[in-house]
Write a protein that binds this DNA or RNA. Structure first.
Lengths: 212, 212
DNA sequence: CGTGCGATGTATCGGTCCGATACATCGCGG
DNA sequence: CCGCGATGTATCGGACCGATACATCGCACG
């Protein structure tokens, strides 16, 4: 999971560890707390050993036009390689069971802008199926085993059940949106004739197939 | 966390590993999937080594009256000790930072029936504080950094923000309930500190299922 | 009659990730 | 000038997971 997230983020820009952690926290803030350095650095080394990323010590040699609002010390900047991009594409497209658990789904979803529509649909539906199963389990417990449990436990299950139902509805909406070929967001003002942001997933067209 | 959960469950009845896992899944189904055996068995051994629980191989000695709808094979039944109960009470009362993360809070909440009211209130408020912080972080990202993120990531944050707001409301309700002295139902005293036969009769709604 | 299959049951191993900790540099306010 | 918080890299022990192995039992299906 961490591997996927790092590869995805480094595709947007080269970064050093600290920055990576912050961007990760911003992008995945909805699903998990900030990643631990105890995971981050070992993973970076693993990725580098595999050739997915390259490490470059920062060199202030030629003065860029960027004044570097952060100081340039002995930071280590990581850049994704061509192989890394391939690896990312492979990871994003193949869906295992871990793709549908809370964290796995969240990470995949966060990179939906780099995922083709068919895969998006597959993941959304897989997630929905999984949440529906959890929901059924909760309903079972609340129905059949309710008298064996105390009021607090019951209340916890009710809250969980509510969250499940809500997420299923959310997923339904996203799936419907996806099928209709539209991006998921709220209607932007001035949709008619505005400029296109290129960080939005492309509309229903299937012409996109770039090879970096 | 696992330690707390096991100690809590074994206080309701002695169990073997498989059963423990199922009960755990039923009790904590709202917050996490079933516990892995790769965690369960080593933890059981750790708890036994510490003296919190004792292990007893099942003896089919005078098993005439039991038809045993499940066979009595080499199952290992674990029973909590007096020291284990003390340990549980200590774990349930002391609140570290991990008490307020998703899993930690869920486990604590699931045993609220064995937690005194002051601790319940403290935990509820700590959790609320933590969720409020997450909520503010999400709002920040949605406000300040919205243009840096793609539509899917934004949608993820919105969904997360919604979940946060909902949970805060839920917590407020529980806190108000708690303050008004009226828990969802009758709590039971589970705090250790020596004998505890002085307080209340056993829980009213509880029906002990006899197992073969 | 047997044969395979799913539930019950105990157990280990490798790997991922976290939390605590250590250490060093920088800019800033007191 | 000194501390302090942000920035930044790094390691270590431990918690937990997923896959796997293995054994027994009852039952359905041929």
């Amino acid at each position: 999971m961490l591997e996927l997230a790092i590869l995805g983020l480094l595709q947007e820009a080269p970064m050093h560890g600290y920055e990576l952690r912050k961007e990760l926290a911003a992008k995945l803030g909805a699903i998990r707390a900030a990643i631990s350095y105890g995971s981050l650095y070992p993973t970076l080394r693993r990725l580098q050993a595999a050739g997915w990323i390259t490490e470059a010590a920062e060199t202030p040699a030629t003065a860029e036009e960027v004044p570097a609002l952060t100081s340039r010390r002995g930071r280590v900047v990581y850049t994704i390689t061509a192989e890394g991009k391939e690896r990312f594409a492979q990871l994003i497209a193949q869906a295992g069971p871990e793709t549908y658990d809370d964290t796995g789904f969240g990470v995949h979803f966060a990179f939906f802008a780099r995922t083709d529509q068919a895969t998006r649909l597959r993941i959304l539906e897989g997630r929905r199926r999984k949440i529906e199963e959890r929901r059924e389990g909760l309903r079972d417990v609340l129905g059949r085993a309710a008298e064996r449990l105390d009021a607090y436990t019951l209340e916890l299950q009710r809250h969980g059940l509510d969250a499940c139902e809500r997420e299923v509805r959310w997923l339904e909406e996203l799936i419907a949106n996806e099928r209709s070929g539209r991006a998921p967001t709220v209607p932007q003002p001035g949709t008619a004739g505005g400029r296109r942001e290129d960080n939005s997933p492309p509309p229903p067209g299937e012409s996109r197939k770039e090879r970096p």
